[in-house]
Amino acid sequence: MQIFVTFEYSTLLEIAITELEEKGITEIYAVPLDPRKKHPRLLDSIHRSDGLSLVDKGMVLAFMFATIGATKGFVWDWGPVIWGLIGAAAGFITGVLLNWIIYLLKRHKNERELKKGKTGEVILIVTCEENNVSVVEDILWDHQALGLAITK
């Protein structure tokens, strides 16, 4: 049986490996994952998306500001069409700037965490007999495993 486990790299991982070796399980393979080094792209294409979008808040605010501008445009000079377009442009720019500021703050926070010493995760592959699976599983969960999968 093989057990695949993910851990955040810490001393608990080392202790779990030591306990497994004390129980007679010697086929243990640990693979550290490299943290992301490049920042996500700011503009998504139709074929690739990373979940980061700068225009979502811009579109919502453009709709809201255009509605308000068109409504007030019936009273103001230049009319509802021009004020609706001005409101849409102002809302879109406000939303994009808001998303840009939020992105920069999150990126700065993530860079600080990486500099602080937050390391990547580790995948641990443990090969053992079927009668040892529950013991291995208990040891791994007791040492704060993030996820666990068992295969035959």
Rank of each mutant, 00 (worst) to 15 (best):
V55F: 09
E121T: 05
R36T: 15
L52N: 13
E22I: 07
H143W: 02
L124M: 06
M1W: 09
N110I: 03
E129K: 10
D34S: 11
Y29W: 06
G73I: 10
I82K: 12
D77H: 11
Q144D: 09
V75I: 13
A66C: 07
F63P: 02
K116E: 15
V75P: 00
M64S: 11
L20M: 08
L104Q: 09
G147F: 01
G147N: 13
I101F: 03
L42S: 03
L146S: 07
H47T: 02
S49Q: 11
A90T: 15
I101P: 00
E21L: 07
I86D: 03
K106R: 10
L114E: 05
L61T: 03
L98D: 08
G91M: 04
D34F: 02
E19G: 00
I86E: 02
V122P: 02
T151Y: 09
N99S: 13
G51W: 01
A145F: 03
A149E: 13
E21H: 11
E129P: 02
W100Y: 09
P40S: 05
L124V: 06
L105A: 08
R107I: 10
K152S: 10
L52Q: 11
G58E: 06
I93G: 01
Q2V: 14
L104A: 10
Y29L: 12
I46L: 15
V122F: 01
G58L: 09
I125K: 05
S53R: 04
I123W: 04
N132Y: 13
W78D: 11
Y9C: 01
V75N: 09
F7R: 00
I17Q: 12
E113D: 11
I15R: 15
I139T: 08
K118W: 01
K37S: 09
W76N: 07
T67N: 00
V81F: 15
S134Q: 08
K115V: 12
Y9L: 05
D56V: 12
M1S: 13
L42K: 06
E27L: 10
K38V: 12
P32L: 00
R36Q: 13
I102R: 11
G24I: 07
W83G: 13
H39N: 13
T6H: 04
E113P: 00
G73K: 11
E14M: 02
T119V: 07
L61N: 02
V81W: 14
K118P: 00
G24C: 05
K57C: 12
G79A: 11
G58S: 09
D56F: 12
N132R: 15
I150C: 10
T26H: 10
I68N: 00
R48A: 09
G69R: 11
E129G: 12
V96D: 01
A88E: 04
F4W: 12
H47Q: 00
K118N: 06
L43I: 14
A16W: 00
E130L: 10
F92P: 04
T94F: 10
I139C: 04
I68G: 05
V5G: 02
T94K: 02
L146R: 13
I15K: 15
E113N: 13
V122A: 04
V5E: 01
D77Y: 10
L124H: 02
N99K: 05
G117A: 04
M64F: 14
D50V: 08
W78T: 14
E121V: 01
K57F: 15
N131W: 08
N131H: 12
K116Q: 14
A62W: 03
V60G: 00
F63T: 14
L61G: 01
T11G: 08
G91W: 03
D138I: 07
T11N: 10
